[in-house]
């Protein structure tokens, strides 16, 4: 087994494009779930909106890449309104049900034959829709730090991606330290109390949903830009739950939680996957085949998610004391 290769892969992925995408998605969940207590189980819907806005605006409607970004953000805000309107007055599980359902509705709609002309059906949309983005690439060749190497295009995506992450984290930091953030945390603890103090809980929840949704849309942007393609079946509901795992790994309601979580998550996922792959192909685990490695990794994610909630709901670096007070 080539441990150096495995580690290189794991390290590269832990700061690579996937880590950025999931970090942004988890940062959105951090605002919604971590600070406000909103159970958005359909973060992937915002990623669909992000990805398909870019691809369809450019490829199907002939708009520019920059218009596409605006379209994406506006669509994302509209989606938040649609999700929030019926559910934010109701108990938490209704939001969970409606968001997961909406994420599937969106996926089924964009993959439908009826709308193939615009969204490409099952095959999705493929083409150089992010050409205007890559035209700005200042890198002449790929960049490498030690064992970590990115291609020329990936280097540009990774650079912009981490800048976006930095901005998102800064916004989270500023907001959660403000009176606005105080209200969100209050809603998380007991929304009726906040309502009795004269704050419009409904509106604050909506703002949190919108802000977190926009962060999910940014994740969708990066996802689509990096591969210059959008495919409906890469936006299954499980994406949302990986983002939850990441958030809980890094610690919900912690400013850097999504970053820490995403880096660790992708390191572990790739490390476990590669290790399994190599040991299986070397014949050490006779009862498994390499096609089973993918599912097995996700079994670990599922178990990890359960264990985090049960044993360390405050995240792996979290403080037990704060949690002992919360009823969640």
């Amino acid at each position: 087994m080539d441990i150096v290769f495995v580690l290189e892969q794991a390290l590269t992925q832990s700061i690579g494009i996937q880590a950025i995408i999931y970090c942004l998605a988890a940062a959105g969940l951090n605002i919604q779930f971590g600070y406000t207590g909103l159970l958005n189980f359909g973060q992937v819907a915002f990623m669909i909106v992000g990805g398909y806005s870019i691809a369809a605006t450019v490829l199907s409607f002939g708009g520019s890449f920059w218009t596409a970004l605006v379209v994406g953000i506006i669509s994302s805000l509209i989606l938040s309104l649609i999700l929030g309107l019926p559910t934010l007055r109701l108990r938490a599980d209704y939001l969970a049900i409606v968001t997961i359902a909406t994420s599937e509705i969106l996926r089924l709609v964009v993959r439908s034959v009826a709308l193939r002309e615009w969204f490409g059906g099952v095959n999705g949309l493929n083409g150089k829709f992010a050409a205007q983005f890559y035209a700005l690439n200042p890198y002449q060749s790929g960049i490498g730090i030690g064992p970590i190497n990115f291609s020329q295009n990936d280097s540009w995506v990774v650079t912009i991606g981490w800048i976006l992450v930095a901005i998102v984290i800064l916004i989270t930091f500023l907001l959660t330290r403000s009176p606005w953030g105080r209200i969100l945390k209050g809603i998380r603890e007991d929304e009726e109390a906040i309502r009795s103090l004269g704050k419009s809980v409904y509106w604050y929840k909506m703002q949190a949903l919108m802000l977190g949704g926009v962060m999910g849309t940014l994740a969708g942007f990066i996802f689509a830009i990096a591969s210059q393609s959008v495919q409906p079946d890469s936006y299954v509901p499980d994406v949302t739950f990986f983002a939850y795992t990441i958030l809980l790994l890094g610690g919900a309601a912690r400013v850097f939680g999504p970053v820490v979580g995403s880096i660790i998550f992708w390191f572990l996922l790739v490390f476990i996957g590669q290790t399994l792959d190599q040991t299986i192909s070397a014949g050490y685990i006779p009862f498994l085949t390499s096609t089973q490695v993918g599912p097995i990794r996700f079994i670990f994610v599922g178990i990890g998610l359960m264990c985090l909630i049960i044993f360390r709901p405050q995240g792996i670096f979290g403080d037990r004391k704060e949690l002992a007070l919360g009823g969640r």
Binding site: W180, R182, K185, G186, E189, L197, Q207, E322, L325, G327
Partner: peptide, 24 residues
């Protein structure tokens, strides 16, 4: 309905009206 994971001071501050910082 004390807000458990907020400080006592933050609990009290939440009651005040007309807080500019409460807009996004």
């Amino acid at each position: 309905k004390a807000l458990s994971r907020l400080s006592v001071l933050d609990n009290a501050r939440l009651g005040a009206k007309n807080q500019i910082g409460e807009s996004l």
